[in-house]
């Protein structure tokens, strides 16, 4: 079995978000970049599966769409345990464009893992779009993957509960929290080995894009918090009822 994990390069989750002067683009100055948190969990699960089933899983490949500066993120993915990385040399425009690029390198994989969204533009789209472009079955909101005899045992969250599924490969799983307990931190040995692993750069294909961000705004600053004494806590409920009128 060959596994492909899609990797997004996103600002560190503690980044203070700021935009350029006319508020049309994210200001990336001074930003630390990381593997998109959901993709990092997906990769962690792929590595766990390979460790548990060395006889069944041949390789884990990671792929992203980005320029040369995103290679540090791919090297980290290699250090976590991927065997090979592919960087498609293009700016990650909209989800359609990114999925179209990934579709060119996604042939021949039995299992493709995608994070449920990226922590920058929260598009929730690339995984599902790629599955449709490849005419591949997909399962979303996946919080568990196990290898069973000739099938994949998948846990997914549904609106109002959870389900266990039996799915055949090839499959694209859009994963969320729970898929791995915690993201794996690369060990020194992994970091050393990652330097020698292949990182292939592929030219971008022509592809359409259908959406574009035309502006951004930061939330309006909040008014000061109204403080109530600990022994007057019931008064807070009265304020919610009479003043805020939300009870």
């Amino acid at each position: 079995m060959k596994i492909l994990v899609l990797i997004g390069n996103v600002p560190d989750t503690t980044t203070k978000i700021k935009f350029n002067a006319d508020k049309t683009a994210f200001d990336a100055s001074g930003v630390q970049w990381i593997i998109n948190p959901w993709d990092e969990l997906a990769l962690t699960r792929a590595v766990e599966l390979k460790e548990a089933h060395a006889d069944k899983i041949e390789s884990i490949v990671v792929a992203n769409v980005g320029r040369a500066e995103t290679e540090a993120t791919l090297r980290k993915a290699l250090a976590v345990g991927a065997d090979e990385a592919i960087r498609i040399d293009a700016d990650a425009k909209d989800a359609w464009y990114v999925a179209s690029q990934l579709a060119k390198v996604a042939a021949g994989f039995d299992l493709i893992l995608a994070g449920i969204e990226a922590s920058d533009y929260n598009g929730s789209a690339v995984g599902g779009m790629l599955a449709e472009m490849l005419d591949m079955k997909s399962v979303s909101a996946v919080s568990g993957i196990e290898l069973a005899d000739g099938a994949l045992k998948i846990s997914r969250e549904i609106d109002g509960g959870s389900q266990t599924l039996s799915m055949q490969t090839p499959l694209l799983a859009v994963v969320q929290k729970g898929i791995a307990k915690e993201p794996r931190i690369p060990a020194m040995r992994g970091i050393m080995m990652a330097r020698k692993k292949p990182l292939n750069v592929v030219a971008a294909a022509d592809a359409e894009e259908h959406t574009a961000f035309v502006g951004f705004e930061l939330p309006a600053p909040k008014a000061a918090c109204k403080m109530i004494a600990e022994d007057q806590a019931g008064e807070l409920i009265n304020l919610l009822h009479n003043e805020a009128k939300v009870l």
Binding site: G123, A125, V126, G128, M129, D159
Partner: peptide
């Protein structure tokens, strides 16, 4: 809906309809 099912279906639907998708 931007819920589990909507998030799963919308991107596939967008590709079928050659449509741009805005989520959430």
């Amino acid at each position: 809906a931007h819920n589990n099912l909507g998030k799963a279906v919308a991107p596939r639907l967008a590709v079928r309809l050659k449509a741009g998708l805005a989520a959430g």
